[in-house]
Design a protein around this nucleic acid. Sequence first.
DNA 1: GAAGATGGGGCAGCCATATTGACGTATCTA
DNA 2: TAGATACGTCAATATGGCTGCCCCATCTTC
Lengths: 169, 169
Amino acid sequence: MAAPSSVSAAPTASPLFLREHEVRRGVELLFFGYTRLTRAIDDGLAEHGLGRAHHRALYFIARQPDLTISELLKILAITKQSLGRVLTDLAEKALIETRTGVVDRRQKLLRLTAEGVRFEAQLFDALRTSLAAAYAAAGQESVTGFWRVLEGLIPAEDKAMVIALQKDI
Amino acid sequence: MAAPSSVSAAPTASPLFLREHEVRRGVELLFFGYTRLTRAIDDGLAEHGLGRAHHRALYFIARQPDLTISELLKILAITKQSLGRVLTDLAEKALIETRTGVVDRRQKLLRLTAEGVRFEAQLFDALRTSLAAAYAAAGQESVTGFWRVLEGLIPAEDKAMVIALQKDI
DNA sequence: GAAGATGGGGCAGCCATATTGACGTATCTA
DNA sequence: TAGATACGTCAATATGGCTGCCCCATCTTC
């Protein structure tokens, strides 16, 4: 955590001259933190024969009931083909259901079934356990910083989408 | 970013009762932040016909020259088979080279070639641009919090490995 | 010096998740 | 009515993981 000596005269004035060490640390912590968090639910998913792709869809449908296919595609940033398979699997396992859109009958509104709600909650519990422990160890101040930095990593064109997600709950 | 009001009398005393909202926000920001950061180097990789798996290996070899295969396996947490393919590709493109271990001749010490150093630096530059912008927008205080929370996500058995990585530079 | 453990390599086959491009149908909008 | 949009689906392909099994070289220990 000690800052190595630097030739920079005014570190805060020229943030793009951040020392390599600080950037590498961020890259690595993001890699390990993300992979370890996602690993926390692999067992729960495997019990149902599902993978991480299924969880991502399940998660965002839980988060925004009556989401449309195209909205979910934007969030996940994968192709229609890839999402199609995932949704088919989830529907076959009766974890999600679709209804025809009311304002636009071309749309399909995605929702979790009661069983889907139960399952998503179970997976979410594993995530909460991990994240809550990290939050608690770091303290509220740190959590705020954690959010701020991550928000800065999201490109402007995606930011509205993320914020929209978070205004609901 | 403002802490929502809470019924908890002593918020820091019962950290496991974190509101769902705060956990979901972390899950989502981690997802978007991680995927957007990694996307920053996809083009550079594609130019050389490489994927993210190659970058991960390249990155950690750059970080710890003379890393052994088994150390790299622990870091990446994939199988020998999977890593083997990746390393073969990198060697064929003359981005890495191996030498026989000196203290233990069974080991192979991994290093970047001059070209590998150049390429890794180019990819790193894209990561730095993204992360440095996020750091700068968030401020140094936030960066510290960002690190703290992520450190808390790493299970105890992996922590030594991550810390070992970061003491070098 | 022999036995066993360890570091590394490799074969065969499989699975999950993503991609592209093209095309079809229902529905909405101008 | 014409065109755009939302969704579904075909076929083919790539990437990056996995398991189980076996091999060799080298180190360690008895």
